[in-house]
């Protein structure tokens, strides 16, 4: 039996919102340590890796490993019915064909219960090994989202170049070109505004703007995003959860 209680429904809402436009359905793998998901979009360009560790939950138990096949659009509709501040409990028996979703209002004496039909999903997974990283950038997630949106107005590609003391985001298209350069910054009063850049090798990579638009839907999950880049390799974009992460692996674009 699986039972996981979130202190606030808003966390699961944000996670599902960040995933549902990239993949329509995926398996949630539940173990005694928490819940993990690996899912790849139809074009096999963007991979989502989610880990919700046990400590994220107010209460958590999972007696036996369970795989829950979930349609994210349907899941999103149901969890949208709860208030952000509600407790949200997900519940499944071993071999269940439905997932129980329970909202508890913290003020009113009100409990709402829903059942989501589970799917049988035959997903082929990719072997994502620990990758070497040439450059790591950590910046406010809202700043990264704005850069991606602004550059998307110019081109379907975003070029990221990283040197020792700066990261440059640039796009060039039919109407013109643009660039944003960020530099490391320590803000003691507002640590969430700090920017760090660490570099072993200079980086010059391009990514598809439309996939970056999907990635930045995770912005509300974390004040910061960490971007790990390696030349000629997929980029990793990580949003930390209170305990765990939502990570995106994005295949780069290359010169033809």
């Amino acid at each position: 039996m699986l039972e996981g209680k979130f202190e606030e429904a808003s966390l699961l809402k944000k996670i599902v919102e960040a995933m549902k436009d990239c993949v329509s359905s995926c398996n949630f793998n539940c173990t005694e340590n928490g819940i993990s998901v690996q899912a790849v979009d139809n074009s096999r360009v963007l991979l989502i890796s989610l880990l919700i560790e046990k400590d994220t939950f107010e209460e958590y138990r999972c007696d036996r490993n369970i795989t829950l096949g979930i349609g994210l659009g349907s899941f999103s509709k149901i969890i949208g019915n709860g208030a952000n501040s509600d407790y949200l409990t997900i519940q499944a028996e071993d071999d269940a064909d439905t997932l129980g979703i329970i909202f508890e209002d913290k003020v009113k004496d009100k409990i709402s219960e829903y059942n989501l039909k589970l799917l049988d999903i035959d997903a082929d997974l990719l072997e994502v090994d620990a990758m070497e990283t040439d450059a790591t950038i950590t910046l406010p997630s809202a700043d990264f989202a704005k850069i991606c949106k602004d550059m998307k107005t110019l081109s379907e590609s975003l070029q990221i170049t990283v040197t020792k003391d700066s990261a440059k985001f640039q796009s060039a298209g039919e109407i013109g070109s643009g660039s944003v350069v960020i530099k490391p910054k320590t803000d003691i009063d507002h640590p969430e505004e700090s920017i760090t850049i660490s570099l072993d090798k200079p980086i010059d990579l391009s990514f598809g703007s439309k996939y970056l638009s999907d990635i930045i839907k995770a912005t509300s999950l974390s004040q910061k995003v960490t971007i790990k880049l390696t030349e000629d390799s997929p980029g990793v974009f990580e949003y930390k959860l209170p305990s765990g992460y939502l990570r995106f692996y994005l295949a780069p674009k290359f010169d033809e």
Binding site: S43, V45, S157, S206, A251, P252, E256
Partner: peptide
Amino acid sequence: SKKQSSLTQFFGKT
């Protein structure tokens, strides 16, 4: 123009 690569070029299937 640039060509989009696929993750399967980098990661093997399990």
